[in-house]
């Protein structure tokens, strides 16, 4: 009897979870233009200025320190990492601020017949999908715009996919945590206080190894989850550039994702139940 009831519950949860995904997909389709702009604007301008305008006006960047690769090549994994990360955080934290604030329209999602932890997990899963989409959208820009040569060699597709998905989950859980611990009105502030520093100090514009010149920063940035995403993508896409060993990257991503998953889910449950 209880085994049967368990099976029925799993089917119900699965259908409810799928229903939540269908709803999110509908909303994303309606807001697709703003999704694209949000995703594309930052890398587009960055690549345009630093790898198109700068070389044209004779101001090089990067170069020697990165094993002979062009700055444009260094930027490919870095800016994809930022796009995935930023998208993952924004896709969970921004709607959550609305849903938890004032009207508490989250209540409607909470009344779906599944455990509350799965309501928040659905948000993270869907944001991961958006993160992957962001990576796909951003890549061609990074490849096509630069005026200098870009050399990308996918060394391992499974590694690339694993890192992007893990990064999406990690960022989604981080968005969940930020969205639940921060007052909805202050969510904008959090983006400048947390998200911007994370992206600037995430080994996006330079490989981690080059930080040997600034040892304290080299150690400090190890606390930044984005570093492992950038380095993981370097290993998968531009293996000729120095990068962290793959097992280290994967272990760090698994550990951080697990920790944030636990913390953010607990925070969400606390926030929505009295």
């Amino acid at each position: 009897m209880s085994a049967q009831a368990g099976a029925v519950a799993r089917v119900t949860y699965g259908r409810a979870f799928y229903g939540l995904m269908v709803r999110d997909a509908r909303v994303l389709r309606r807001e697709f233009v703003s999704f694209l702009l949000r995703t594309v604007m930052n890398p587009l301008l960055f690549v345009f200025v630093f790898t198109y305008v700068f070389p044209k006006i004779g101001r090089g960047l990067g170069g020697g320190a990165s094993g002979g690769a062009t700055f444009a090549t260094v930027l490919v994994p870095g800016l994809i990492a930022v796009a995935v990360f930023f998208q993952g955080i924004a896709a969970v934290a921004l709607p959550l601020a609305t849903e938890l604030g004032g009207t508490r329209e989250i209540e409607d999602r909470l009344m779906a017949p599944l455990p509350i932890a799965l309501v928040s997990f659905e948000k993270v899963v869907f944001s991961t999908f958006q993160s992957v989409l962001a990576a796909v959208v951003v890549f061609p820009l990074l490849y096509l715009i630069p005026a200098e040569p870009v050399s990308v060699h996918i060394s391992s597709w499974p590694l690339l996919i694993a890192v992007v998905i893990m990064a999406g989950l990690l960022a989604g859980f981080l968005g969940l945590l930020l969205g639940t611990v921060v007052q909805p009105r202050q969510i904008g502030l959090i983006f400048s206080l947390v998200v911007v520093p994370i992206t600037f100090l995430g080994c996006v514009y330079y490989p981690w190894q080059t930080l040997s010149a600034i040892p304290w920063l080299k150690v400090l940035t190890l606390a930044n989850p984005l570093v492992y995403v950038s380095e993981g993508l370097r290993a998968a896409m531009t293996p000729s550039i120095p990068h962290m060993p793959v097992p280290v990257v994967l272990a760090a991503l698994v550990a951080i994702t697990g920790g944030l998953g636990w913390l953010s889910t607990r925070s969400f449950i606390r926030r929505v139940t009295d």
Binding site: A16, V22, R23
Partner: peptide, 8 residues
């Protein structure tokens, strides 16, 4: 519609 879908 979505409410119904949440309920399977």
């Amino acid at each position: 519609v979505f409410h119904c879908r949440f309920f399977g």
